[in-house]
Every structure is written in C-alpha cells, then in structure tokens.
C-alpha cells in the first residue's frame, strides 16, 4: 500500500496532485459559475504553444506559457470586438487551437526535447520536476489568499456583475485578477494533469459539489475537498494501474460525479416520498 511513497518522484507527484486538486477545485467553482469552461479548455491548449516556443527560445517555461495564454485571451477579445460577425466561442476555437497546433508542429518537427511534452499533453507523474513543486505551492497559496480576501466581492461579481458595479465593487479589476488566477492555475497544473485533461480537473469537482449543496460558501469548500480527493486518489491509483495521472484524476472525478448525480436524484425522490422538501 505504501510502496509508491518510497520513491522520491512519486512523493513529489503526490504533493503536487493534492495542491493542484485544491487549486482546480476552488478556481473551477468560479469557472463553472461564470460559464468560462470553454475558455479554460481553449487557453490550456493554447499554452502548449507558449510552452514549446519558450523551450526552443530557452525562456522560462512558466513565464512563456502564461504570457502566451494572456496574449491568446487578448487576441480573442480583439477579434470579438472588431469583427462582430464572429462569436466568442468561434474566436476561442480559432486562436487557442492555432496555439496548440503550433506547439504540436514544433514538437513533431524537432524530436530532441528533454522536457517531457507528452506529459504536458496527457499528464504524467514523471513529468513533475522538483521546481514544479515550488511553483504549484506558490500558486496555491496565492490563489487561497486571493479567494479569501476577495471572497464577498468576487461572489457579488460572479452572481450579479451589473449590480455589483453599482455597489462599488471594482469589477474590471477583479475580472483581470480572475483571468490571471485562471491562467496561473492552468500553467502549474499542466505537467501533472495534461492540457487535454485540464478542463475536466477544473470543472468536475465544482459540478459534483453543485449537486450536493445550494450554498455558495459550502460549494467552495466542498469543491476544494473533492478536487483534492480526485487529485490524490487519481495519482495514487495511477501508480498501480500504470495509467497517465491526468486521465486517472479525471476518471476518479467522473466516478464521484456519477455517484453525486445518482444521490441527488434519489434524495429528490425520497424527499417527495416522505413529504420533505428537497431543494
């Protein structure tokens, strides 16, 4: 049972999995409620382009991927603003897939990478380098600080952006802060989860928790806890099953989601049967 913990790389991956789980679970709540799942999905893919280009140009991986993600978001915004015939979802499709394609093209052209880009695509425990632990720790602490300190204002902005502005909530500033939070989360989660799986890790804990509670405060805590469980459990099982850690984290999450789905249906039915109000 404890055998994998004898390996340094596994312990490292396990710690990162727990932190990535909390991070994705918390940030995912806002992503889901602001209906940003698709942009999260797109940005994580686009970042592969930034990661590869920054590697080729001997540039810091985290900085490269973040800047690339940020520029992609700006480009999407520009296209939607200046060519009104193009919808936001279509613009996301163009820009982010182009970034992803560029990354894949460079990888397939030069096959001499020491950095594990297969891990970045599909997620791999072995792809987690020692410096990644620090990056994930720093990002998780930053995210926790932001979420705690802006909790009430961010909730107002997420629930009711128009009225939040009337009540003096700095909406433009918080929107930018959240965009940076999302980009940072995607970048540090990339190696463990893989860009193709990232949106699952981000969205599944939040929607699972949503089936179990109607209160925002409880949703946030529950989603963080479910994210952590998915991350740790998925990574642990991946050692024995020899399955990519990203896929495993998403699959564990999917099982929990199905259970929560069945439970919420059952609860509603039992409630009606016993005449108790369920909501």
């Amino acid at each position: 049972m404890l055998e994998p913990f004898e390996y340094g790389f596994f312990v490292r991956g396990f710690i990162v999995a727990g932190l990535v789980g909390i991070l994705c679970g918390l940030v995912g709540v806002y992503v889901v409620l602001r209906r940003m799942s698709y942009i999260g999905h797109g940005l994580s893919h686009a970042m592969i382009g930034g990661a590869v280009v920054s590697y080729v140009m001997a540039f810091n991986f985290y900085a490269g991927a973040s800047i690339w993600g940020f520029l992609s978001a700006l480009l999407i915004n520009t296209i939607v603003r200046h060519r009104r015939a193009i919808g936001t979802d279509a613009a996301i499709g163009v820009i982010t897939t182009a970034g992803f394609a560029l990354g894949v093209a460079i990888i397939s052209r030069y096959r001499t990478f020491t950095r594990n880009f297969e891990a970045a695509l599909l997620g791999n425990l072995m792809g987690v380098a020692p410096q990644d632990v620090w990056a994930v720790t720093a990002m998780t602490l930053t995210a926790l600080a932001i979420i705690i300190l802006t909790y009430r204002r961010m909730l107002f902005l997420t629930f009711d952006p128009e009225v939040a502005a009337y009540y003096g909530v700095p909406t433009a500033w918080l929107d930018s802060l959240f965009a940076l939070l999302l980009a940072g989360t995607l970048v540090v989660s990339m190696q463990l989860i893989g860009v193709t799986m990232l949106v699952g890790a981000l969205v599944i804990p939040a929607v699972t928790a949503r089936l179990l509670t109607d209160s925002f405060g409880r949703l946030l805590v529950l989603s963080g806890a479910i994210g952590t469980f998915n991350g740790l459990c998925g990574t642990y099982l991946s050692y024995f099953l020899d399955v990519s850690s990203g896929a495993n984290v998403v699959l564990v999450g999917t099982v929990l989601f199905v259970l929560a789905y069945l439970w919420s249906g059952l609860r509603g039915r039992l409630g009606r049967l016993w005449g108790i109000e369920a909501h």
């Binding site: 300190l149 802006t150 009430r152 204002r153 909730l155 107002f156 629930f159 009711d160 939040a164 009540y167 003096g168 909530v169």
Partner: peptide, 9 residues
Amino acid sequence: LLGLASNKA
C-alpha cells in the same frame, strides 16, 4: 449579505 459586501476584505 452581498448588500454589505462592496469593500470587505
């Protein structure tokens, strides 16, 4: 509670 939220850290 949101009605009291505008500048609460």
